[in-house]
């Protein structure tokens, strides 16, 4: 199927694959040690995993269960990530026109020439 996860989300999944079902609080404790995340950060990432359908939450104690296995996970390809983030920034209507967007190859060549000229 292929659910795409960020590294941070993958980190949560790895914990669940390794330890089995875990209450959210436990995950937070483990990841605090491993990554230095605070509780809220871990909870936010768990929530994102749930939104992507990678994790379900069971009562009691917000026990988290992995819904997918390692094989189901795809990481984003570099190009996808770039497009994803770049599109996000395009929507920033007010800064979009101010920020310099990606450079064309032509522009990059010009910049390199500029460096040489000013050398």
């Amino acid at each position: 199927m292929g659910i795409k996860l960020f590294d941070s989300e993958l980190k949560v999944m790895e914990t669940l694959w390794k330890e089995g079902d875990l209450p959210a609080g436990e995950i937070a404790k483990i990841l605090q040690k491993e990554t230095g995340w605070n509780r809220n950060t871990t909870y936010t990432v768990i929530k994102k995993c749930m939104e992507k359908g990678a994790v379900e939450r069971l009562e009691p104690k917000f026990t988290c269960r992995a819904l997918i296995s390692r094989e189901d996970v795809q990481t984003y390809k570099t190009k996808e990530l770039i497009d994803k983030m770049f599109d996000g920034s395009k929507q920033q209507f007010f800064t979009a026109f101010l920020s310099d967007n990606s450079l064309t190859e032509e522009e990059i060549r010009e910049l390199k020439e500029l460096v040489n000229r000013l050398k």
């Binding site: 770049f86 920034s89 920033q92 920020s99 310099d100 990606s102 990059i108 500029l114 000013l118």
Partner: peptide, 24 residues
């Protein structure tokens, strides 16, 4: 600069602003 960079409002990003001016 070859990498497309998304714009951050609060973080101090690298390789964002007017590369030409910076290089000069």
């Amino acid at each position: 600069a070859q990498m497309k960079s998304s714009t951050y409002w609060f973080s101090c990003g690298f390789g964002k602003h007017a590369v030409k001016e910076r290089i000069e």
